[in-house]
């Protein structure tokens, strides 16, 4: 199964929910990112029940607090 994460294709053995994908992509804590699935920002409660399928486009938007 192929999905697109942050613009790059990745291969997965089968369907996976957003929670485990975060772990797979080495996001240490779900609080570190906002997750957008096919253009829609997911609520955190949805992470574990949202199953990704072939062709889904996922964006991890990282909190970036710096500026000074």
């Amino acid at each position: 199964m192929e999905i697109i994460v942050n613009g790059k294709k990745i291969q997965l053995p089968g369907p996976i929910s957003v929670g485990p994908l975060l772990a797979l992509e080495q996001v240490r804590m779900p609080e570190m990112v906002s997750v957008e699935l096919n253009g829609r920002i997911l609520r955190r409660e949805e992470f574990d029940r949202t199953i990704l399928g072939t062709g889904d486009q996922v964006e991890f938007l990282y909190f970036m607090g710096g500026g000074a």
């Binding site: 609080e31 570190m32 920002i41 938007l61 909190f63 710096g66």
Partner: peptide, 16 residues
């Protein structure tokens, strides 16, 4: 806030 609803918990994200 549409994208990042609320600040991350203290310590979750490093600063510069």
């Amino acid at each position: 806030r549409c994208v990042f609803r609320q600040p991350p918990p203290a310590g979750a994200v490093p600063n510069c």
